[in-house]
Computed example of a mutant assay.
Amino acid sequence: MTDPNDDMLDDLFGQARNVAPEPSEALVARVLADAAAVRHAAATPKPTLLDRFFDMIGGWPAAGGLVAATLGGLWIGVAPPASVEDFTAAMLGEQVAVGILSSDTVFDMDPLADG
């Protein structure tokens, strides 16, 4: 004997097999929008390390400010104004001068010549 509930289920599954599932238009639109976003994200180049550094410090204007401050500090360190030299001498108690290159070393070509 067969169970009438099983016959009803077989009929229901048979009807379901005959119906082709159709996605809604909203679902199709969302899937296509996601695909376009992924394609656009893949097409844009990844930022380089230098780009990420500039973004971190605030962009090109901040980098320009850092370069100007660095060059100003280098200038003051190499050729300090008299007031800075006087202040440093007063703080340290004595004036210290260190020559990086002497004029003899710059123009002395004898060690480089072969003879």
Rank of each mutant, 00 (worst) to 15 (best):
A29L: 04
F87M: 09
E22S: 03
H40N: 06
V28F: 06
R39M: 04
R17E: 13
L112T: 08
T70Y: 05
G59K: 02
M91Q: 05
I100H: 04
L12R: 15
I57V: 07
L9N: 12
Q95T: 12
A69G: 04
W75S: 15
V19G: 07
P61H: 10
L112R: 09
F13E: 15
G65D: 10
V38L: 08
D55M: 02
E25H: 04
N18I: 03
V67M: 14
L32F: 04
S24M: 00
A62P: 01
D51A: 15
A63P: 01
A20G: 04
F107D: 03
H40W: 09
P81Y: 09
N18V: 11
G59C: 02
V19W: 15
G58C: 03
A79S: 11
F87G: 09
S102D: 08
G72L: 06
V31R: 03
S102R: 01
N18T: 11
V96Q: 04
V67I: 10
G64A: 06
A63D: 13
A89R: 15
A62C: 04
I57A: 03
A26P: 03
G115F: 04
A33E: 08
A97K: 05
D6R: 14
R30D: 14
A42D: 03
L101K: 14
E22G: 08
G72N: 10
A29C: 07
N18K: 10
A37M: 02
L12W: 12
V67P: 00
G73I: 00
D55Q: 15
F87Y: 07
D11Q: 15
A29W: 00
S103L: 07
F53E: 14
D11H: 13
A26Y: 10
E22A: 14
S83C: 13
A68L: 08
G59W: 04
L101R: 08
D6W: 12
V106Q: 06
D104F: 07
S103G: 11
L74R: 08
V84L: 14
E85K: 12
S24R: 03
L49M: 14
